[in-house]
Design a protein around this nucleic acid. Sequence first.
DNA 1: CTGAAAGCGCTTACAG
DNA 2: CTGAAAGCGCTTACAG
Lengths: 329, 329
Amino acid sequence: MKDVAQRAGVAVSSVSRVLSGNPDVSPVMRNRVMDAVAALGYEKDLIAQGMRSGATSSVGFMAVDIANPIIAAASAGAIRELRNNGYSLLISSSDGSTELDADYIRSFQLRRVEGLLLSVADEEDVRTLDALEQFTAALVFMDRAFPRNIKASAVVYDHRSGMAAAVDHLLDLGHRKLALINGAPRVRPARERANAVRQAIRRVKEATVVVRGGSYSASHGYDACKTLMGSASPPTAIIVGGNQILQGVMAALVELGLKVPDDVSLVTLDNVPLAEFISPSLACVTRDPVNMGTLGAELVLELINGGTPRTVELPTTFVRGESCAAPRG
Amino acid sequence: MKDVAQRAGVAVSSVSRVLSGNPDVSPVMRNRVMDAVAALGYEKDLIAQGMRSGATSSVGFMAVDIANPIIAAASAGAIRELRNNGYSLLISSSDGSTELDADYIRSFQLRRVEGLLLSVADEEDVRTLDALEQFTAALVFMDRAFPRNIKASAVVYDHRSGMAAAVDHLLDLGHRKLALINGAPRVRPARERANAVRQAIRRVKEATVVVRGGSYSASHGYDACKTLMGSASPPTAIIVGGNQILQGVMAALVELGLKVPDDVSLVTLDNVPLAEFISPSLACVTRDPVNMGTLGAELVLELINGGTPRTVELPTTFVRGESCAAPRG
DNA sequence: CTGAAAGCGCTTACAG
DNA sequence: CTGAAAGCGCTTACAG
C-alpha cells in the first residue's frame, strides 16, 4: 500500500480511502490510485485490515463431523455463498467432543471471525454454552436449539412434517408396532424426530412406537436393532434416524436373516448415493443439505451487516420406497 | 496483554517472551505472568500475532469439491492433525473452476496462511500455475503433479497397483475387451489410471482397452457407457474412474437393460456407503482418504518448520466383488 | 477533498 | 534477565 501511494504520489490514507470505497475522494485521486493498484497488482493485506478494523472477512464453521455427507454438503453451500461476498471460511470438526466444541468457539473468537455457523455436539453442555455467551460475533445455529439469552439466527429443518408423513404411510399400510432407532436426544434433530413420531402415532389408538436414542453410530444401530427384533413383541416397521445408524441396522437385519420389507419395513434418513440400485429401494425422509449451508451463510452475512436475528425453517420430505410394505399376518 | 502486564507488574515485552516460550526468562517472571494470565483468562490475539510475526497458525485447503466424500474425508484428517498442532484450516471449494483455483491461491496468500494443501482442478492451467509461482508459503499437493520449478511436498496415491490388480483379475476371468470410463486427464489420478490400465493390458496380446476421458460427472458416465455399449464391438468389462461417473454408468446400464455381471463386468472406485447391500457386490479399487489429509497436514507442518519438500505415496487396493465374472460366450 | 499522525495487539532487536 | 521503543500494514478521527 505504501508502494501504491508512492507510485500514485499520494498519501497512504488516500489509497486506503479509495480502496475501501469511501465516497469522499475526487475522481482524479481515484483514477491515479487505481492505476497504481493495477500497475503493481496490489491487493490488500487481509490480516492487517482485520487487525486494524476488525473486519477479518472470515466466518467459522463448526460441526460434529465434516466428513458426514450432510455436513460436507452444507459446508459447500456456505463456502460458495461466502465466497461471493468476499468472505473465507474457517472450518472445524469436533468429532463429537464437547470440549473441542468449546475450544473451537474460543479459537474462532481469537481469530476474530466476524461470524460463526455451528452445529454443537451437545446443546446443553455447560462449557459450550459458556463459550457461546462470551462469543461476541454473529452466531447462526444449524439445526440446533439454543437458550433465549443467546442472540443468534438459526436455520432449522422441519423434521416433523417428513417424519409424520412417514408414520402416516406406515400406519396406512397397517403397521401398529413401530420403532425409531434415533440419534442423540441432546440435539434438536433427534428430539424433533422423536416428538414427531410420538405425535403422529396417536392417529391410530392401538399403534405404539418405541424410541431408542443413542449415538449417531453404526454400533448403536446394530445393538438397537438386535434388541428390538429379539424382544417379545418386535416392531413391524423401523424408522432409522441417521446414515451411520442405518449401516448398523442393515447389518443386524442381515445377521438376523430378516428380509425387508417381508419381515420388517424400513424408513431411512437422507438419500444415499446409488440408493436406486439397492434392492428393495429405500423409503426415506430427505432434505436439502446444501441449502442449509447457503441459507446459514446468508443469515450470518445479514447479522454481520447489522440485521436482527431470525430463524428460517427448511422442509423435509417423505419419499416412498419398496422397503415399506404391509406387515405380515 | 497490556492487562496481563499491568496485573503482573511487568512490561508487555516480558509477557510476550513468557507466552512465546522464550528461554531467557526468570522463573519468578514466568510465574508472575502465568498467574496473571490464569487470573484474567487471557489468550493471545492470533490476528495481531499473525500481523507482527507472520505466524498466523493457519493453513489453507483447496479442492475441487469439498462435498465429494473423498475430499471431505481428507479434510477431516487434515483438520484433526492441524488442530493437534495449534493450526486452523481455511477451506475452499473451486467447483472445478480454474479461475477460482487461482483466485483462492491468491486469497490464501493475502490471508497469510503458513501453508496450503491443494488439489487443483487443472494441473496445466496457466493462471493457476502463475498464482502458485507467486505463492510464498509451504505447498503440499494432494494427488496432483506439478512443475519442477515449484518447490512443494506431495502426497499421492499409487493408482497403478490397484488398477493393475483390477485389470489382471479381469484378464484372468477371460475378458479381452475392456473399457475405462475415466475422469479428466488434466489431473494426475485420471492419467495414472489410464496409464496403468494400458500397461497392464499388455500382458495378454489380444486384449484391448478403450479409455474415455471426461469430467467427473454422472452425465459423462452415462454418455460414455451408452456409446461404448452401443458400439460394434462393446467391451465385456468396464472400469469406472469415479463415484459421480459410476452413477451415470449404472443408470445407463439399467436403461440398456444390461445386467452386471451377466452382460458386462464392472469395477468401481472407492467404497460407497451401504455398498454391501447393493447386489451384485461391487468390485472396486479403494484407498484411505482420511490418511491423505492427515499426511498432507504432517507434510505441510514439516515444511513450515523448515523441512525439505518430499513426496509420500499411499497405496490403493483392488477388492474383488460379484460385479466381475467371466464374459459370456 | 487530502495528508500527517495515532493506534489496532502483538514481537523483536536494542540497550542496560 | 528485563524494559522502552519501533514497527508489522492497515484505518480513522483530526486538521487543514
